[in-house]
Design a protein around this nucleic acid. Structure first.
Length: 190
DNA sequence: GAAACGATTACT
DNA sequence: GTAATCGTTTCA
């Protein structure tokens, strides 16, 4: 694991960072620093949910009251309740009018898993829609910490999405202890 | 209106 | 393997 010193920008990542291809944003968010109040952590695991064609994306069923924010301007938080118990934090991507978001699954030391991350940050739907490029409560700072290679793998928990479940749209820092789900180097059996 | 279904987690 | 738990979506 990297013990390199982390240099963190004071200003939040600009909207232009988020108003790009969702895959690019998901990959580039790994290694950046998520700040929520007094807590902060380096993002080590993300997933891309891309547009209305992606069956695993909430925008797959079109523009509804819940998914409205996915169609809005990039750089805003999309926080929803999952399984009636946990919340998941996403960042809206793409140009306004084009739906897309990056699920922030884990950050160190805020892991593991998207539900635990929101619980530890005290995030709920009350914070849904926050502007991450300006809000002081919740923001993401650029970090020049060397994260090493970012590894791509299939998204977790979307087996229902058919062919879309196989797309390697999950991005992780390999071998990081805070990453949830399958490890990049699974324990081998003797 | 009723019912099924999760972008999860913790426990048996 | 499965329970917990509720908003969103779908179907009648």
């Amino acid at each position: 694991m990297s013990a390199l010193p982390i240099t963190i920008d004071a200003a939040p990542l600009p909207r232009a960072f988020y108003a790009r291809s969702t895959l690019d944003v998901a990959r580039d968010l790994v290694g950046q620093v998520l700040v929520c109040g007094e807590r902060q952590g380096r993002i080590v695991e993300t997933e891309a949910y891309i547009g209305q064609a992606d069956r695993a994306c909430h925008a797959f069923h079109g523009r509804t009251k819940r998914t409205e924010i996915l169609f809005g301007p990039a750089g805003h938080a999309y926080i929803y309740l999952i399984y009636g118990m946990y919340h998941c934090l996403n960042v809206v991507t793409e140009a306004e009018g084009t739906p897309g978001a990056v699920l922030i699954r884990a950050a160190e030391p805020l892991g593991r898993g998207p539900g635990v991350l929101c619980r530890e940050l005290g995030l709920s739907r009350a914070q849904n829609g926050l502007d991450l490029t300006t809000a002081s409560e919740l923001r993401i700072l650029a970090s020049r910490c060397s994260a090493g290679e970012v590894q791509a793998s299939p998204r977790i928990g979307v087996d229902y999405a058919g062919e879309w479940a196989a797309e390697p749209w999950r991005f992780t820092i390999p071998d990081n202890r805070w990453v949830s789900g399958p490890r990049s180097t699974p324990r081998r059996r003797a």
